[in-house]
Amino acid sequence: MIIQILVSGLVLGCVYGLIALGYSLIYKASGMLNFTQGDILTLGAFLGYTFYGVFHIPFILTVIIVFIIMLGFGMVLEKGIISKLVAKGTLPIYTVLATIAVSYIIQNGSMLVWGTQSINFPRIFHVTNIKILGVNIQTEAFVCILVSMICMVSLHIFMKHTRFGTSMRAAAMDPLAARSLGINVSLATGLTWGISAAVAALAGMLIGPLYGVYTTLGATIGRKGFASAVMGGYGNMYGAMLGGAILGLVETFTSAYISSSYKDLVAYILLITFLFIKPTGIFNERAIQD
């Protein structure tokens, strides 16, 4: 049973981690907070269901299509709202509020298009379960862990070891200096938001077959993803995943061995503890103090 709980906690943690990756990426590359991540996950799940479940487009193709759509969505969000507010010289808090407003628009918009009932996201794999360490794990859950790891490593490599990733970080640190060096700051920032949205949508498509798809699917996950990013070290890719894993495991083990009533209490006390004792997170990312 303990292995089963461990795996469930890890799956949950990986979903939180994928969302946390988006928060971290945006903060790392543009110094902003984006609270639409959870609802973008929902939108991704709905789009995935539409292409895969309704139009019967192969899953891999569905992932590519939704990834591209959400990449565009994230860029449009940044260009159409965030950068406009920044250009007006509004306080950073207003951009955060704008992202909260957008999250409600996505939630209500999804309600209008797909309705309020739970929708069954068809299974991705023919093999229902795979056996790891003697316990049955739903194939989609295992893939979820695998994809999260791949995303974490690739995003880290992209940000740290590619020219474009370096440009993105430079654009976030000092836009003026970056511009003077010939970096396209606008494109770099837009792309960051796009990638974050695409990763969140990917998470939505992965958890769709596990949980079904409904309009509030990403609401709680979004909040927990934020907490994960803070715990891991806001702005750090590995920290995002580790924070997610810790939060997922803490929640699951608290439910199993203490009480389900204390699950959220313990999780958020952990977040507050990190904010007070180690605001730079496990990976000592200095983003919070910037």
Binding site: S118, S255, S260
Partner: peptide, 30 residues
């Protein structure tokens, strides 16, 4: 559980460990 939760494996594990003959469920929505 809290509305919006998506993982209940902890609760389920505890329930199964208590070796019930049946489960009574009082939930809503998804």
């Amino acid at each position: 559980y809290t509305e919006g939760d998506t993982d209940f494996s902890g609760q389920v594990a505890k329930m199964i460990n208590s070796k019930p003959d049946a489960v009574f469920c009082s939930t809503n929505g998804p």
